[in-house]
Amino acid sequence: MCGCGCNPCTISLTETLWSFLGALLGMGAVGYVQYVMLAGTDGVLLIGSFGASAVLLFGVPNAPLSQPRNLVGGHVLSALVGVFFAAHVPLPWLAAALAVATAIAVMHLTATLHPPGGATALIAVIGSGDIHALGYAYALMPALSGALILLVAALLVNNIPATRRYPQYWN
């Protein structure tokens, strides 16, 4: 089961196309901001964990882990956790492990579990010098900003067909 009550082996072509369109528009919007609006700046917006968020938001929009609170809270809290461990644990392998494990615990405790959040925490530790230079601002740009762009795309695309309703709940 995929969280929407359907058998994953029998997803309709129509649902597949809506998932494709949503992911294309959502990731396209994040990429557009990264490569056009932030061109010539040190702004970083496009991170790998957003690809996994797109799978949830557009592939299984009814799933509990795809809801807005999980998307936004999961990315922002995990970003903060990742930056903390990147800054305070000198061994990268240990910082990475602590960041992901703690991000999972924090997301559980705050009811914001979003699996791509683990990757957001990990990116804060193993990311480029540009990512490290952001410090705690990483929680705002890219984590919050990118999640909000994906959320707007999910609200628009997932409510066009009568077969989809997003979100299932806000809290």
Rank of each mutant, 00 (worst) to 15 (best):
M1T: 10
N7Q: 09
C9Y: 13
T10W: 06
T10Y: 08
I11A: 15
I11L: 15
S12K: 06
S12D: 09
T14Q: 05
T16E: 13
T16N: 06
L17A: 14
W18K: 08
L21P: 00
A23W: 00
A23C: 02
A23Q: 01
L25V: 12
G26P: 05
M27Y: 07
Y32I: 11
Q34E: 15
Q34S: 03
Y35Q: 02
M37Q: 09
L38V: 12
A39N: 14
G40F: 05
G40Y: 03
G43L: 01
G43P: 04
L45V: 12
S49P: 02
G51M: 11
S53Q: 04
V55P: 00
L56P: 08
G59S: 10
P61M: 06
N62R: 11
N62D: 15
A63Q: 04
P64E: 05
P64K: 07
P64W: 13
Q67D: 00
P68W: 08
V72G: 09
V72L: 08
G73N: 05
H75S: 08
S78P: 02
L80W: 10
G82I: 06
G82E: 13
V83R: 05
F85W: 15
P90V: 08
W93T: 13
L94V: 09
A97V: 09
A101Y: 09
A101K: 01
A103P: 02
V106N: 10
M107N: 03
M107T: 02
L109K: 13
T110L: 06
A111G: 10
P115F: 02
G118S: 04
G118Y: 13
A119Y: 13
A119P: 09
A121K: 08
I123F: 14
I123L: 14
V125F: 15
I126Y: 09
G127A: 05
G129A: 15
G129D: 06
I131K: 11
I131Q: 13
H132E: 04
H132R: 11
L134D: 09
G135H: 06
Y136R: 00
Y136S: 01
L140P: 04
M141I: 07
M141S: 06
M141L: 04
P142D: 02
A143P: 06
A143S: 15
S145D: 00
L148P: 04
L148R: 06
V152K: 11
A153I: 07
A153T: 11
A154K: 02
N158C: 13
N158D: 03
I160C: 04
T163D: 07
Y166M: 11
Y166P: 13
Y166W: 14
Q168W: 00
Y169M: 05
